[in-house]
Design a protein around this nucleic acid. Structure first.
Length: 688
DNA sequence: CTAGGGTTAG
């Protein structure tokens, strides 16, 4: 009878699956339940391009049927040789069977792992983002004195990096005797993936100074996503060209993203156009480029061009265009339906991420009904899906529906931090104080989740909107974590509806320290003073804003009419129907004034006569867009407009009256939420 | 037999 060593040589010299199969069968007959030999066979299947066979064999090794009585002999020379196991671990890891790889490792305690054992296992931990398992392997390797091996150490850095623990990665990196380009690259990647982008670039610069280490393709691919400024982008671009790496497809794809992120959209497009053999990642990167620059029309053109060229789409690409459409000011429900149609035609509508993206798309384009229809038809839903639908209900002011959905979800899944943000923001949009409090308290008591600043901000919002300003302030004072600008922003926001100089100042002073360039906060504080009659103070804040060099973001409103998007600025006269719009506006304002509408000049500019203030309110972009919509659509048609900032209080009041006198439903999306106006009432219940 | 990489929904 041949020894195991002889069998193993036979297995490993097999050149084809066809010859491996009978040999494997012979092994099973002669040496049943010889794990190392079966492992060698499995890794050979993987090496010959059949990971599926390797996997099913590995599975049978992990969960064996009871073996016949004969057992493997333990006296063989190579019984403890980890080599075949290492091959199998790698095969499993490469096949994406990470849990199986780790299970296999746990089943081989009789074997002494060697330095080859750890890299594939650490890679599996990285893919699974299982830092606990990874740290355990780290301890095993250290106990065996293998953690100092260059390959093991590099794998550890990468594993901690993928798990988002840059500190642990750094510790391993700093402890290394020799650092190769791979070590540096892994460390840069670790910092990048933990969100420490500038530190990652700093590491990249430090590496450039290191002797004998030159960046390569992988280094650039890790460094490019960290670049945030045009100058840095140019610098990397130069280095890449100098190294002759600029013809590489992955490098060019990453360049497109890098240049676009830095605002060099034109340059990004040039790099994209010069890719001769574009792959799906190239196209996706270009669409993402445009999405980040808020250039939805260009993103859509790229998408349409792909369709013309007959390029097959995948889920990632479709998600890019879905996100571009969701976020854009220029898209409408019509666009959502067009993209939805394409998604169905290319059969990507059964993909969980795509479906969730579509739910969000319809929510953001204003159709809760379509969003819910997709949600209901989904076979599978994860936390992201539920939180998308819950926050969708919240944005549209359907607080009770959001809470109902949250209850349904809790019966199936355990909520995470973000789901709670969705639920709490839904409570704040709908003014559900008690429900919000209960929900907030349940985070820690029922789910062991420590509330983060976002959750505190929601609670302050909820209390503030209910007029409980002092309670909101006390709530902040008792926070166990440091309140950030979102928390103070909520407190200041509450003063919009319940003007209170003391509290507004308290919040604003913090905000001016934390986030001095945000123009909205100055405007808000100034408006609070105005509505309290403290005109001098209001002027002081406007002056402060000027002296800080803070520019007020220009407000604008868009509306789609007959498949074309129109944009209105305040007092805009560029529209071809301008004369008609202003005549109709005058008429409408007269009508609603007779019904009781009183212009709220707190929202107007100062230093002008009352009558001029009123006129300046009339020409707010929201009102212009609504009137334009009314003129250009038939009775019964819903008017949908989209404003880049929060809708102003006066326009909100006027729109309620307009919905009543015209009998039209008007849907306004602002930077914060949706307002559905119908019959003189708004879905936000005047909480916003 | 081993390490690092471009696009991915709340």
């Amino acid at each position: 009878m041949a020894t195991r060593g002889e069998w193993r040589v036979l297995l490993q010299s097999c050149g084809s699956v066809r010859s491996l199969k009978p040999l494997h069968a012979a092994v099973l007959r002669r040496r049943p339940s010889d794990l190392p030999l079966s492992a060698a066979a499995a890794s050979r299947y993987a090496a010959l391009g059949r990971p599926d066979l390797a996997l099913s064999l590995a599975t049978s090794l992990l969960y064996p049927t009871p073996p016949p009585s004969s057992s493997s002999s333990s006296s063989d020379d190579d019984h403890d040789d980890p080599f075949p196991w290492n091959l199998l671990l790698r095969a499993l890891s490469d096949a994406g069977e990470h849990r199986r790889a780790l299970s296999l490792y746990r089943l081989m305690p009789h074997l002494l792992p060697d330095r080859f054992t750890f890299p594939p296992l650490l890679k599996s931990c990285a893919r699974l983002r299982d830092v606990a398992e990874g740290a355990a392997l780290h301890r095993h390797a250290a106990a065996l004195g293998l953690h100092a091996d260059a390959f093991v150490a590099n794998s550890l850095v990468a594993m901690y990096g993928h798990c988002g623990d840059a500190g642990a990665a750094r510790e391993v990196f700093d402890g290394m005797r020799e650092r190769s380009v791979v070590s540096w690259t892994a460390m840069i990647g670790a910092l990048a993936q933990s969100g420490f982008r500038s530190e990652a670039l700093g590491m990249f610069r430090k590496m450039l100074e290191e002797r004998g280490v030159r960046p390569n393709r992988a280094t650039f691919l890790n460094a490019m996503p960290c670049v945030a400024s045009g100058e840095e982008a140019d610098e990397l671009y130069e280095l890449i060209v100098r190294q002759g790496l600029d013809s590489d497809l992955s490098i060019r794809n990453a360049m497109v993203g890098m240049l676009a992120r830095c605002g060099r959209t034109q340059f990004a497009r040039k790099v994209f156009d010069e890719i001769s053999e574009k792959d799906l990642v190239s196209w996706t990167s270009m669409i993402e480029a445009y999405r980040q620059a808020d250039m939805y029309a260009d993103a859509l053109n790229i998408f349409k061009k792909m369709k013309q060229l007959g390029i097959p789409l995948d889920a990632v690409l479709v998600l890019a265009i879905i996100r571009a459409c969701s976020n854009s000011m220029l898209a409408s429900i019509r666009h959502a339906k067009f993209i939805h149609g394409v998604v169905i035609r290319v059969s990507l509508h059964k993909d969980l991420m795509v479906e969730t993206g579509l739910v969000d798309l319809y929510v953001k384009r204003g159709s809760l009904v379509d969003a819910r229809k997709i949600f209901d038809r989904m076979k599978e839903r994860n936390l992201v899906t539920w939180s998308t639908m819950i926050s969708g209900y919240g944005m549209h002011g359907h607080g009770k529906d959001a809470l109902q959905l949250f209850e349904n979800m809790k019966a199936l899944l355990v909520p995470d931090h973000i789901v709670f943000v969705s639920v709490l923001s839904a409570c704040s949009h709908a003014g559900l104080v008690d429900e919000g409090k209960r929900c907030f308290n349940s985070m820690a008591s029922e789910f062991g989740l420590a509330p983060r600043t976002e959750h505190y901000a929601c609670m302050v919002d909820i209390l503030g909107r209910a007029g409980k300003l002092n309670e909101a302030r006390e709530f902040i004072e008792k926070m166990p974590i440091k309140p950030d600008s979102s928390v103070w922003g909520s407190l200041l926001g509450a003063c919009r509806m319940y003007p209170n100089a003391e509290i507004a100042e308290l919040a604003a002073n913090q905000l001016f320290k934390l986030d001095p360039q945000n123009s909205g906060r100055y405007v808000l504080l100034s408006n609070v003073y105005t509505s309290l009659g403290k005109i001098e103070e209001a002027h002081r804040i406007r002056a402060l804003m000027r002296s800080q060099g803070v520019k007020k973001t220009a407000g604008y409103t868009v509306i789609e009419v007959k498949n074309k998007v129109y944009k209105f600025l305040v007092g805009d006269e560029r529209n071809p129907q301008s004369d008609l719009i202003y005549r109709e506006l005058e008429r409408l304002m007269d009508r609603i004034r007779r019904m009781g509408y009183v212009p709220n000049t707190n929202f107007a500019l100062h230093d002008v006569e009352e009558e001029t203030k009123e006129k300046s309110l009339y020409v707010h972009s929201e009102k212009l867009a609504v009137v334009f919509g009314l003129i250009n659509s038939g009775p019964g048609c819903v008017i949908r407009i989209h404003k880049n900032l929060r809708v102003c209080g006066d326009c909100h009041s006027a729109t309620k009256f307009i919905s009543e006198v015209t009998g039209r439903d008007i849907v306004v999306r602002d930077s914060h939420r949706f307002h559905h106006f119908s019959g003189g009432v708004c879905s936000c219940g005047d909480y916003w």
